[in-house]
C-alpha cells in the first residue's frame, strides 16, 4: 500500500514541557489507525501537529515524501489533503449546513458552485444529513453537527482524515450515530487517523492501534496484539484501568 504520511522523530515542546518526543509512524492508503492513551499523553497534540494547527518543534512530517515542516509543500494545499474533524465540531456558525460543506470547495479548491453543491450533497447524504442543508449549526444536535463536520471534511476529497476525539463532546446517546458514520467510512476505504477513547471502535474498526503515554508511542500493533496481549506494562495498566472504569 502506498505510504501517504510518514512522521519522523516528531517533537513538540510547550516551553520546557515536552509534549511529544521522538514520534515515528507512518500512514498508508486505506489505514484506519486508532490512537489511544490517557488524557495528557499527547494524542491530540500529535494530531494537531500533523494538521499544522500546532507547530512541531522538531522532526519531519513527510507527505508523499515532501517534508511539510520544511516548507516543501504549501501549508494550505497540504491541509486540503489532510482533513480534520474536531472534538468541538467547529462548524462555521454563520453558515448553513450546505454552505459549511461548500465554502472550502468553492474558495479553496475553486470548484464551481454546482459541482461543489453536488459533492456537498453526496457527502451529506452519506452521513444522513442531506435533509438539513438549510439549518444553521446551532439548530442541530451534537451528533448531527459532528456528522456535518465529517461531510465538510470529506467534501474536500482529502487523502487522509484526522479525527480528534470526535465523540468525546457528545451525549452518550449520540455517540453511536457518529461511530456508525466513521465505521462506514472506514469500510469504504477511507484512510483515517483517529484519536479516541472508544475502545470498541479501536478494537473492531481500526487495522492498527497506537498506544501513547507521556508523549511517546509506547506500543503499536494490530488491535488484537494491543488489546489481547499487550507487551508493555504501561499498556496493560492503561487497558485494565480503562476496563475497570467501564465496568467491563
Amino acid at each position: 500500500m502506498a505510504e501517504i504520511i510518514k512522521v519522523e522523530h516528531l517533537a513538540k515542546t510547550f516551553g520546557t514541557n515536552e509534549v511529544l518526543r521522538d514520534i515515528d509512524f507512518s500512514v498508508s492508503s486505506g489505514d484506519v489507525i486508532s490512537i489511544i492513551g490517557a488524557s495528557g499523553s499527547g494524542k491530540s497534540t500529535l494530531l494537531r501537529c500533523i494538521n499544522l494547527l500546532e507547530e512541531a518543534t522538531g522532526g519531519k512530517i513527510l507527505f508523499h515524501g515532501k517534508n511539510v515542516l520544511a516548507g516543501d509543500m504549501n501549508e494550505d494545499e497540504y491541509r486540503t489533503k489532510v482533513g480534520m474533524v474536531f472534538q468541538s465540531f467547529n462548524l462555521f456558525s454563520n453558515l448553513s449546513v450546505l454552505d459549511n460543506c461548500m465554502i472550502g470547495q468553492v474558495k479553496v479548491l475553486r470548484r464551481g458552485k454546482e459541482e461543489a453543491r453536488e459533492y456537498a450533497m453526496e457527502y451529506l447524504s452519506k452521513v444522513g444529513m442531506a435533509q438539513y442543508i438549510k439549518a444553521k449549526p446551532k439548530q442541530l444536535s451534537g451528533g448531527q453537527k459532528q456528522r456535518v463536520a465529517i461531510a465538510r471534511a470529506l467534501a474536500m476529497n482529502p487523502e487522509v482524515l484526522l479525527f480528534d476525539e470526535p465523540t468525546s463532546a457528545l451525549d452518550p446517546e449520540m455517540v453511536g450515530e457518529v461511530l456508525d458514520v466513521m465505521k462506514a467510512l472506514a469500510e469504504s476505504g477511507m484512510t483515517m487517523l483517529v484519536v479516541t477513547h472508544e475502545m470498541a471502535f479501536a478494537r473492531d474498526v481500526s487495522n492498527r492501534v497506537i498506544y501513547m503515554a507521556d508523549g511517546r508511542i509506547e506500543e503499536e500493533g494490530s488491535p488484537k496484539d494491543i488489546f489481547s496481549n499487550p507487551r508493555k506494562e504501561k499498556t496493560k495498566d492503561f487497558l485494565s484501568r480503562f476496563r475497570s472504569e467501564r465496568g467491563e
Partner: peptide, 27 residues
C-alpha cells in the same frame, strides 16, 4: 426554524445509507 429539504433530487440518490423517514437520519 429551518425547512427540511425533502424534495431535493440530489439528496438521497447516493451514499452508503438511505434516508429513513421515521428516524430522520442514519440508524
Amino acid at each position: 426554524n429551518f425547512d427540511l429539504a425533502t424534495n431535493d433530487t440530489l439528496a438521497f440518490t447516493s451514499g452508503l445509507t438511505k434516508y429513513n423517514d421515521k428516524t430522520g437520519g442514519l440508524h
